[in-house]
Amino acid sequence: MPRPVALVTDSTALLSPAVAEARGVTVVPLQVVVGAKAYDEGMDAEATPETIAAALREWTPVSTSRPTPAVFLEAYEAAAAAGAEAVVSIHLSGDVSGTYESAQLAARDASIPVRTLDTRQLGMAVGFAVLAAADVADAGGTAEHVLAAARDRAAAATSLFYVDTLEYLRRGGRIGAAAALVGSALSVKPLLKIVDGRIGPLEKVRTASRALARLEELAVAAAEGHQVDVAVAHLANPEKAEALAAGLRRRLDDRLGALGVSVGEVGAVIGAHVGPGMVAVVVSPRDT
């Protein structure tokens, strides 16, 4: 029997197909455009992080686009046809993508109530919010309770990352307040943070190894006093991502739940904006 409250998110939440299916979450893909060809993230096999990293290195034009309202409406109506009484639709920050706006527009035309949430976050900070919502939905919570669980989980998350260069963020117009770092980007590794839905500057360090050390320190500080889920993500930088994850597992062992510290490559859409070499960490308290 379907849950009364259906869940929809977008592909930037970094939920694997297996997890999305197991938790009853519909994932609507964003598109990534490489050269003149468009791909649906997570659905087209060609749209891999490796493909995006190679294209960026070769200066092949790479851009992204949001799902149309019609695509979201199709997902909402499919949920209604399956027996859902309401939908909670959970998405990446509206300040870096028009995805949330598309979800809002579609919600107006849906045949059942649709509550939309701009998490003000990116990547697994959105994914953890979706999983928190799924827990409440599985327990029979109302749409309001499901929405509140996602909103609280997203608000409590800390999202940190470093990039080898700010050039890719600058090209895509996603740099926000971190633009102040551009002038010195050649001599530093910028540490960045998601602040109220935007990418903001945090610190400047001289080397990649120091950047990783600071990410670990900052993540441990963010977990202080909480039971947490932690995700490390990267683009074409698996060794440094695994090293960061190992340090966090060691230092946060008594605070980690069943999910532990996950490690994975970012999707094609996020990868298109951060560029090769990026390493990120999300700390998501479960006791919000």
Score class of each variant (00 low, 15 high):
residue 132 A to D: 12
residue 146 V to N: 05
residue 272 A to W: 08
residue 224 E to H: 12
residue 166 L to H: 11
residue 70 A to M: 07
residue 127 G to I: 08
residue 172 G to P: 02
residue 191 L to N: 11
residue 153 R to C: 09
residue 261 V to W: 02
residue 235 L to V: 13
residue 109 D to E: 15
residue 116 T to I: 06
residue 221 A to P: 00
residue 33 V to E: 13
residue 270 I to P: 08
residue 190 P to N: 00
residue 29 P to T: 08
residue 39 Y to E: 10
residue 204 K to P: 01
residue 131 L to M: 15
residue 73 L to C: 07
residue 282 V to F: 06
residue 104 Q to V: 15
residue 76 Y to G: 01
residue 266 V to R: 03
residue 103 A to V: 03
residue 229 D to Q: 09
residue 255 R to N: 12
residue 205 V to N: 02
residue 75 A to K: 07
residue 187 S to D: 15
residue 264 G to V: 04
residue 183 G to T: 09
residue 258 A to E: 15
residue 68 T to N: 00
residue 34 V to E: 10
residue 56 L to R: 06
residue 225 G to N: 04
residue 95 D to W: 05
residue 104 Q to Y: 00
residue 47 A to H: 14
residue 3 R to N: 04
residue 142 T to A: 07
residue 249 R to N: 13
residue 279 V to K: 01
residue 269 V to Q: 07
residue 52 I to T: 08
residue 246 A to I: 03
residue 82 A to V: 02
residue 133 A to P: 09
residue 61 P to L: 11
residue 125 A to W: 06
residue 218 L to Q: 10
residue 210 R to A: 14
residue 119 T to F: 09
residue 105 L to T: 01
residue 226 H to A: 06
residue 43 M to H: 14
residue 228 V to E: 04
residue 238 P to M: 06
residue 186 L to M: 14
residue 153 R to G: 04
residue 235 L to D: 13
residue 140 G to E: 11
residue 82 A to K: 12
residue 209 S to F: 11
residue 274 V to Q: 00
residue 17 P to F: 00
residue 212 L to F: 00
residue 82 A to R: 14
residue 153 R to S: 14
residue 283 V to W: 13
residue 246 A to V: 09
residue 68 T to K: 05
residue 23 R to N: 10
residue 38 A to K: 01
residue 281 V to N: 06
residue 44 D to N: 13
residue 93 S to E: 12
residue 252 L to I: 10
residue 280 A to G: 10
residue 280 A to W: 10
residue 252 L to H: 08
residue 272 A to E: 02
residue 122 L to T: 14
residue 136 V to Y: 13
residue 32 V to Y: 14
residue 26 T to M: 03
residue 189 K to G: 01
residue 170 R to T: 12
residue 179 A to L: 11
residue 43 M to N: 06
residue 181 L to Q: 02
residue 276 P to S: 01
residue 231 A to F: 10
residue 243 A to N: 11
residue 115 R to A: 12
residue 260 G to T: 04
residue 152 D to L: 05
residue 281 V to R: 02
residue 56 L to A: 09
residue 122 L to R: 00
residue 101 E to M: 06
residue 238 P to G: 09
residue 202 L to Q: 13
residue 131 L to S: 06
residue 199 I to Q: 07
residue 246 A to L: 11
residue 50 E to W: 00
residue 117 L to M: 03
residue 42 G to D: 13
residue 48 T to H: 02
residue 267 G to D: 14
residue 157 A to P: 03
residue 75 A to T: 08
residue 38 A to E: 14
residue 19 V to I: 15
residue 262 S to K: 03
residue 265 E to V: 13
residue 106 A to R: 01
residue 265 E to K: 00
residue 86 A to Y: 01
residue 43 M to F: 13
residue 162 Y to L: 11
residue 179 A to Q: 14
residue 273 H to S: 04
residue 139 A to G: 08
residue 97 S to L: 07
residue 197 G to A: 10
residue 152 D to Y: 05
residue 230 V to S: 06
residue 184 S to W: 06
residue 254 D to K: 07
residue 281 V to Q: 04
residue 165 T to K: 04
residue 127 G to S: 06
residue 233 A to P: 01
residue 4 P to K: 10
residue 286 R to M: 12
